[in-house]
């Protein structure tokens, strides 16, 4: 796998901001690092040719989540501390190391990006969607065609989940309305 300079820089930025978000003792700094991490991931999605996911990550991960975290932070009390970094226990380090090892051994065996022999490209289902999506649903974006037409019932479920989450927040906080 070869990386261009830009890809390597973004990867480095993502890993750096993730580690910063995890280790910083100051919660405000952590939130800012986490927003940077989300933005880096969003750019990586664009590189992986998944603009729909990139849009979601940039809007929700980097935008709205940061605001919600900040709002929550305003209402909490932060204990003053002189230490810059959180101390890492051996349990956390072991769990993190194990997860990283598992990912580093499994991810490289995935097919390369754009590999014509990859199962998802050569598969019957993908080819069916690419061939018939426009004719059957009159939508050019195959992702939207699958989302709203072929898997429309699932998407109705997703929309209702968002709706139910909003209602649940109101019920738990015992409020009648949002604003």
């Amino acid at each position: 796998m070869t990386l261009t300079l830009l890809e390597a820089a973004i990867l480095l930025f993502v890993i750096g901001s993730a580690v910063t978000a995890a280790l910083l003792r100051d919660v405000l700094g952590s939130i800012i690092a986490f927003a940077g991490y989300s933005l880096g991931i969003a750019i990586l999605w664009v590189y992986l040719q998944a603009p729909d996911v990139a849009l979601t990550e940039a809007a929700v991960g980097a935008g709205v989540m940061t605001l919600l975290f900040l709002l929550t932070l305003v209402r909490t009390v932060r204990p003053p501390s002189d230490e810059l970094l959180e101390s890492v226990g051996w349990r956390g380090a072991t769990a993190g190391g194990a997860l990283a090892a598992a990912l580093l051994t499994t991810v490289p065996s995935l097919p390369a990006i754009g590999d014509p022999d990859a199962p998802v490209v050569a598969g019957e289902v993908t080819q069916y969607y690419l061939d018939n999506a426009y004719g059957e649903t009159e939508v050019e974006n195959v992702v939207t065609a699958v989302l709203a037409a072929y898997r429309g019932f699932d998407t109705l479920g997703e929309a209702v989940v968002v709706f139910a989450a909003g209602v649940a927040v109101l019920v738990v906080l015992r409020q009648g309305e949002f604003v």
């Binding site: 709002l71 939207t144 109101l170 949002f178």
Partner: peptide, 24 residues
């Protein structure tokens, strides 16, 4: 499909705004 997308958009917009004010 466009209408369905607009419906989803209305749900998401409302919940995002609502969550923001509820948390604040």
């Amino acid at each position: 499909i466009e209408l369905v997308e607009l419906g989803i958009g209305a749900i998401v917009t409302g919940v995002i705004i609502g969550l923001f004010f509820v948390i604040s």
